[in-house]
Design a protein around this nucleic acid. Structure first.
Lengths: 145, 145
DNA sequence: TATTGTTATACTCTATAACTATA
DNA sequence: TATAGTTATAGAGTATAACAATA
């Protein structure tokens, strides 16, 4: 009997692109975690603080954005609040809701964190404007936008 | 007094590319975790099993590849071993070393996992060969290869 | 002495379920 | 009754430090 093909064969070119994307993903994450650690934050704390640096959000919304259970957000906000980077405020429109908001110090840390995230800035610096446009268009198409 | 610029200004094009890369990274990770969960594995377990499906490795090497402390590898291998996906073997050349190796079942799960990771295959399917070559070249240059 | 793997410990993130206070 | 947030609990990943066996 003939050997069964369980996977469609992938050409070497596609395979290489997949591998390159994997490398980008790995490097991106590594830099993100390092940058967070450089500010004594975990990855989850850095992501949450980054969201709150844009606008205050209800705990529930944070959970949705972080794609985790609401019960987890309680702990992450607790730890950031203990360090004075985040605070909880009542929502005047619904007394069940608590709005998490970055403090002035939290926004400062978030900005500093953003600035130390030079992953994308540095490697893209080597590309010309035309190449960046081309990369943008390819990524857009890849993501189906 | 003039407002101080703490960050070099980034042009909108570069900013958009950065954002697109962020989206790719997020989607890649999400798919990876989902695929792992579909096999009742955590991300760390899936990554370790993936490495061992290629070749047996000393615990120390695994820690280096996973970029974590060797003490963590003990636990991850323990849990995979309990499920019969991995085993520990002595290294004939150095009796201090333990070689972690995927079992036949472990290799089967690793292959199934690889096949369910269609992130890269699917979105790339929409690109022509020329576009993939162009994407490959741009990613290569971005990564400094 | 140095190295390999393990254990012990403590912290964080995670999901689930039960609880409270509002709506 | 339904929803928002919390608490309690348990499992997993992580780093640090100390340890046994081997080099």
């Amino acid at each position: 009997m003939a050997p069964q093909k369980t996977t469609p064969r992938i050409d070497p070119l596609t395979l290489e692109v997949i591998e390159l994307i994997g490398t980008v993903v790995a490097r991106y994450h590594e830099e993100y975690e390092d940058a967070a650690a450089g500010h004594a934050l975990t990855g989850a704390q850095a992501r949450l603080l980054g969201l709150l640096s844009l606008e205050p959000l209800p705990m529930r919304r944070l959970a949705q954005k972080l794609r985790c259970e609401p019960s987890n957000v309680t702990g992450i906000v607790d730890r950031l609040e203990r360090r004075g980077l985040v605070e909880r405020r009542p929502d005047p429109k619904d007394r069940r809701v608590k709005l998490a908001a970055a403090t002035a110090e939290g926004r400062r840390v978030a900005r500093s964190l953003r600035e130390s995230l030079d992953f994308a800035r540095e490697p893209l610096a080597g590309l010309s404007t035309e190449e960046r446009e081309s990369l943008r268009n390819l990524l857009r198409r890849m993501l189906g936008e």
